[in-house]
Design a protein around this nucleic acid. Structure first.
Length: 593
RNA sequence: GGUCCGGUAGCUCAACUGGAUAGAGCAUCAGCCUUCUAAGCUGACGGUUCGGGGUUCGAGUCCCUGCCGGAUCACCA
């Protein structure tokens, strides 16, 4: 039973009965804390129908509604009709959600969606920005799963091009055969190190050349190490065996390094797309578009798309020498994905907001090529994570490394856990897995609670808190409930039941039930808005509501069996919704902490 | 310069898409552990929602305008 829908239809009926015609829009909102009731009908818009003042209109509707079984009480403040739902109705809601461990999750609708996230460059280790990207993409995918979609998580691996050749060149020059095994470094860190080496050597070579009288531009082209990288790129494109072997080896190092990071982050991918596999397809598609007149060729041989009709510019798709650009590859990749997964209705691209223009153009082009699904492609654009000093700059060494940050979070969590004396009676393994859960939970929640499209601030000097509006607060609420349920079963074999509740619900109990009833619609809203923050803030509010109840109303001490059973039941329901909500955010919840 | 995004308590963020006296957390201060886990709870303090106009019963939210910050406007990815 869905209270919202039921109430809405009763109000619609009441309006017709009272004023002779249906209202265009019924506006229901949650009642403010300070007033009695849970649902509020905004009556100002209805005065046109009623031809009465807002208060009189509200009173009339209120009286009509309270003749039914759903609404038990009402009060009118200005034009706001505050409605109290009967306890019987709330208990029925509770009954249903207690019986359903998957409450809130929709059964499969048969719809499919693809979500791309992560897609890092292979020359640098993952950093804080990637964490936001990964957690967001993963969570959006899980939210869609919860609303009945089959979701395919993918990423595109940018394994081709000059950047990887730079690392290769530097490794050949300075590496002395160093490997992840010989150095004990993670593969991505090792390759990243040589990318930095390249940059250093390159800069000093440019400086020397400029000192020797070259112009800046000449020097940048002539620097020996850059020539070497370009040479490697050409050899790679010509499929020179040694070069391809080195490329494979070094990319392999990066992948195994990334894999370790992804594993700790708890994210996964169904399929990986490699740019080295897909970039040629983009060219073909562009050539087809050229043939069909969607694109045009300039005198120098380069191929362009004209978007001036859409308020944008002209955009190059193939260079004069026939090589492809970023856009070309993305066209190819998008089309390939719809071939691989013909049932998906669209794609979500989790990519930073600095690429908004790029995706606007990409979707327009795909539409022009005649792909109807282009309309269902969505750029999940998110803001940068800034440091107090501004943007992260690798040059200034202010990049916050993903592995380091996760490790720090877990270390902090372990320290606080020990300090609070929570580790008593736990094995080392249990402690390790608990602190991992808390540290990563704090980090993920911190990054997910903010509206994705907003920029956010991270202060590395101030460790992420474990108190207040945080992941661990919610995890703790869950652990407390589980502890209580353990005790209940152990001690008395209590059954969870909502029958026989003798007296009226306490306000604090009702608040929790009302909050629980909102979970499914919050998931839907989060999917519609592509915003895990909506789930994050909802679960927090639920934990807050529950904690208020918990501190002032006894459960296990309650002697009345009916009350006790009901309170246990909705405590269990709360724990389940917390677990479910945190799960779509990729955050685990412990049974004790 | 054009386009897009943002500006809410000292700080970090909310505000159900136009609703009531703008809410949480952190920080500060004052309380609550012989009752189910104090990573918790209660209270206090804290606001010209960047400024100025407008639209209407009603504006943080919509429109205009100005200011500040960011992104973007590459034959880079």
């Amino acid at each position: 039973m869905n209270i919202d829908h039921q109430l809405r239809s009763e109000i619609e009926a009441a309006v017709v009965a009272l004023f002779g015609q249906p209202a265009q829009a019924i506006q229901i909102q949650p009642t403010n804390q300070e007033f009695e009731g849970s649902h509020t009908l905004v009556c100002f818009p209805l005065t046109k129908l009623s031809k009465k003042g807002p208060e009189e209109t509200a009173r009339m509707i209120g009286e009509k509604l309270s003749t039914g079984k759903l609404v038990s009480k009402f009060n009118v403040v200005k034009g706001f009709l505050n409605l109290s739902i009967s306890d019987e109705a709330w208990l029925k809601v509770l009954q249903e959600l207690v019986a359903n461990p998957d409450y809130g999750r929709q059964p499969s609708t048969g719809k499919e969606l693809m979500v791309e996230y992560s897609s890092p460059n292979t020359n640098k280790p993952l950093h804080l920005g990637h964490l936001r990207n990964n957690f967001l993409g993963y969570a959006v995918a899980e939210i869609y799963k919860a609303t009945g979609y089959t979701v395919h998580k993918v990423q595109i691996i940018n394994d081709r091009g000059i950047h990887i050749c730079k690392s290769m060149a530097a490794w050949q020059l300075f590496g002395n055969g160093e490997t992840p095994e010989s150095s004990g470094m993670k593969g991505d860190k090792l390759v990243g190190k040589y990318y930095v080496e390249f940059d250093k050597a390159y800069k000093s070579q440019v400086k020397e050349l400029v000192a020797a009288g070259r112009t800046e531009e000449q020097a940048e082209k002539e620097a020996p190490i850059m020539r070497m990288a370009v040479d490697l790129l050409q050899k790679w494109e010509a499929k020179d065996k040694d070069t391809v072997d080195l490329w494979k080896t070094m990319n392999g190092w990066v992948y195994s390094g990334f894999d370790a990071t992804y594993r700790r982050m708890g994210v996964d991918f169904e399929k990986l797309y490699y740019e080295s596999d897909t970039y040629l397809l983009g060219k073909e598609e562009v050539m087809k578009g050229l043939a069909s007149g969607v694109f045009f060729r300039k005198e120098d041989g380069s191929v362009w798309v004209d978007l001036t009709g859409d308020g944008l510019d002209q955009k190059v798709l193939l260079r004069a020498d026939g090589t492809s650009v970023y856009m070309t590859q993305d066209i190819g990749t998008a089309i390939l994905r719809f071939r691989d997964f013909p049932r998906i209705e669209g794609q979500v691209y989790t990519v930073g907001n600095e690429q908004e223009y790029h995706f606007k153009v990409l979707f327009l082009i795909l539409g022009k090529l005649g792909y109807a699904w282009a309309k269902k492609c969505y750029h999940l654009s998110y803001g940068m994570v800034d440091l107090p000093s501004g943007k992260m700059k690798s040059r200034e060494g202010t990049v916050v490394d993903a592995d380091d940050l996760m490790e720090e979070m877990v270390t902090d969590a372990a320290a606080q856990t020990a300090e609070l004396g929570k580790t008593e009676g736990m094995s080392n393994e249990e402690i390790a897995s608990l602190t991992e859960m808390i540290g990563l939970g704090a980090l993920k929640y911190f990054l997910l609670k903010v509206d994705p499209k907003k920029r956010m601030l991270f202060d590395p000097n101030e460790s992420i808190s474990l108190q207040g509006h945080t992941g661990p607060f919610i995890q703790y609420t869950h652990a407390r409930i589980r502890g209580m349920l353990r005790k209940a079963n152990l001690n008395t074999g209590d059954r969870l039941t909502v029958t026989d509740y003798p007296s009226g619900l306490h306000e604090l109990e009702r608040n929790v039930i009302i909050r629980l009833s909102q979970y499914p619609s919050k998931l839907e809203e989060a999917a519609r808005e592509y915003s895990p923050a909506i789930v994050a803030n909802y679960v927090y509010a639920l934990a807050q509501d529950y904690n208020q109840f918990y501190q002032s109303i006894p459960v296990l001490q309650e002697t009345d069996a009916g009350k006790r059973g009901m309170r246990l039941a909705f405590s269990k329901a709360t724990a389940d919704v917390i677990r479910s909500g945190m799960r779509v955010l990729g955050i685990g919840v412990p049974d004790r902490m």
